[in-house]
Design a protein around this nucleic acid. Structure first.
Lengths: 191, 191
DNA sequence: ACCCAGTTACCTGTAAATCGGTAGGTGATG
DNA sequence: CATCACCTACCGATTTACAGGTAACTGGGT
């Protein structure tokens, strides 16, 4: 059972890394602080992930595995599921904070997560376009094509997250997102 | 003229700091690298700004002075001016990158720019609401109130910036923003 | 015109901490 | 006995910041 124990440790480490990155960002997250949170020395942590960058990559990969499995299975989104995703995120500030901080850092030069995020966003936009096409066909009520609306949908989700993280009391993220969906639907109140 | 020389140096330092922060973020920007870019030692830089945080605050304050003076004078925005602001930003990736990186970092715990950004966004949302009210009155064509639409408008601008910074070729930021404005206008093509 | 006292604008030197990472062990497990 | 999990002991680089010095310039009195 040494194998299972090891996998468990790895999972613990990734969870701790997620927390520390949320608090300090990637650059500010030291291996030592992550290790301490798991009850390991920094060198003990390096036994599982040989470099800091390897740890980051593992964190990102896990996130990817997580949100391509839960509910979405490849291309299974629908607009109303997006709505509940936003509601779900509104209850998990930790995870949202981690990836918002990481996204922000990633636009700096030579950041190890940069490639990950550019590829990810290309994929997300493609997914969003597909979702919109499934909901509206080739033209939204506004006349926009799904491909043109996809970046906007993505931008709204991200942008709202930042405003919400900075001041949760000032921004009702799920409600604002619903407002945007209503906008996409042509603006009239829904039943 | 010792006074003028000093002010000039300060301005140089702020400009260099802006660059370095764009490249490395605040946490990644060392005093030494900023100083080197101005042709100073790190200790020479500390003569002008006693701590790293003081330098950051000065950078943020300058930005605030800059974009509350140029064109906006307190409350003078209109929607079409926002459009050209986005176009202007699309030609200034450096500045956009600085403040996107800073915004991302600021959501981490105890970040020195956090308060600045929360206050700033409260103000921006209020401004946006006013702009929208000036354009549409108390109800947008979609039925949304200006106060509800303001966070969305803000979110779109920020979110688009991230996508654009990550992959400028994949996202036409000004065009996407115009798409969103059309959405606000009720969706019909404009003359 | 000249000197002197004070301020400004830096520099060198260094303290003190923290960083990611390597080397080489040790003890438990299989 | 071999492997795995993890530790101690380091290392060199880098970080912010403090101390203290120095040269240039300032304005005011003589």
């Amino acid at each position: 059972m040494v194998r299972a124990r090891s996998e468990e440790r790895r999972a613990d480490i990734l969870r701790a890394a997620l927390e520390v990155i949320a608090e300090r960002g990637y650059r500010g997250a030291s291996l030592g602080s992550v290790a301490e949170r798991v009850g390991l020395t920094q060198q003990g942590l390096l036994h599982y992930f040989p470099t800091k960058e390897a740890l980051l990559v593992a964190v990102l990969e896990e996130r990817d595995r997580w949100d391509t499995s839960g509910g979405r299975d490849r291309e299974g989104w629908r607009l109303d599921l997006l709505e509940s995703l936003v509601e779900y995120n509104a209850m998990r500030p930790g995870i949202v904070q981690t990836f918002s901080a990481l996204l922000g850092e990633s636009v700096t030069d030579g950041h190890p997560a940069r490639e990950f995020f550019t590829e990810r966003y290309a994929l997300v936009r493609a997914n969003m376009a597909q979702v919109l096409r499934l909901e509206f066909g080739d033209r939204l009520p506004s006349g926009l094509s799904p491909e043109r609306a996809a970046p906007l949908l993505t931008a709204v989700m991200d942008g709202l997250q930042y405003q919400w993280l900075l001041d949760p009391a000032a921004v009702d993220m799920p409600a604002a997102f619903r407002d945007f969906l209503r906008l996409l639907h042509g603006g009239e109140p829904r039943p």
